[in-house]
Each structure stands twice: as structure tokens, then as C-alpha cells.
């Protein structure tokens, strides 16, 4: 499976509604040892938002402080990003991700650091 197969996929919750699209895949470095890098990176969960523009700005990260105008503008377009840990995902299909839970149960995405 490729990363870009998942990015941009529709997210369908347990009631069958499309609630968002996948805007990013969060990885955590706690897998089996893999070369000089140490532990391998495993998928921790999916970040989702209203639109997937194929662009990655990084404005939602806490340590990025500006510019104010662009941050506000993209917050407006993207809406509040939400997060689904791996355990909450039922299946990953071509262009579609199905969740085990309802959209309302997802927590708001925090920057990974």
C-alpha cells in the first residue's frame, strides 16, 4: 500500500456518513528495529479535515507562529482537523477509510509534538 493511496481518501464513519477526507498519516517510531534509524515508523493514526488540497503547509502545528494571515485563511478552509487512532479504523479500501466509531466521537487533532 502506498501513502498517497490513503491521503485524500474519504472517511466514512460507523453510521455510513462521509465525515471528512484524510489529510495526513501520523507515524510513530516504535516498530521493529530497522537499520541506522533505529525503530521503524508505524502508522499511529489518520489526520482528517474538510478538504484535501494535496498541499502540506504545517500551519496547524503549535510551534509555527505565523504569518497570521495565512494561518487564519487555511484554518477557515480546512476547518478543525480531527484524529482517528489506528484502533478506531475498521478498514482501508481504495479511496475510502471506514471507522469503527461515529464522527462525533473523534477527538480534535493535536500537532504531533
Amino acid at each position: 500500500m502506498r501513502l498517497t493511496d490513503v491521503l485524500g481518501s474519504e472517511v466514512i464513519d460507523s453510521t455510513g456518513r462521509k465525515i471528512a477526507v484524510v489529510t495526513d498519516v501520523r507515524l510513530v517510531q516504535d516498530g521493529p528495529i530497522l537499520g541506522e534509524l533505529g525503530a521503524a515508523f508505524r502508522v499511529h493514526g489518520l489526520v482528517m479535515g474538510r478538504v484535501s488540497m494535496g498541499a502540506h503547509m504545517g500551519f496547524e502545528r503549535r510551534n509555527v507562529r505565523g504569518p497570521w494571515l495565512l494561518k487564519r485563511f487555511f484554518a477557515l478552509i480546512q476547518g478543525t482537523p480531527h484524529y482517528a487512532e489506528w484502533e478506531l479504523i475498521r478498514s482501508i479500501e481504495p479511496d475510502r477509510v471506514r471507522l469503527r466509531v461515529r464522527g462525533e466521537e473523534l477527538r480534535v487533532a493535536e500537532p504531533p509534538r
Partner: peptide, 16 residues
């Protein structure tokens, strides 16, 4: 709690 580093793949790895 995870001891390992966390990153967003699309932002920090893709297209680098």
C-alpha cells in the same frame, strides 16, 4: 504514552 518520535508523513516526509 509513546516514547517514539511522532511525525506527520505527508508534511514531513513526502516530497522531500
Amino acid at each position: 504514552e509513546y516514547a517514539g518520535r511522532m511525525i506527520d508523513a505527508g508534511l514531513q516526509l513526502l516530497d522531500r
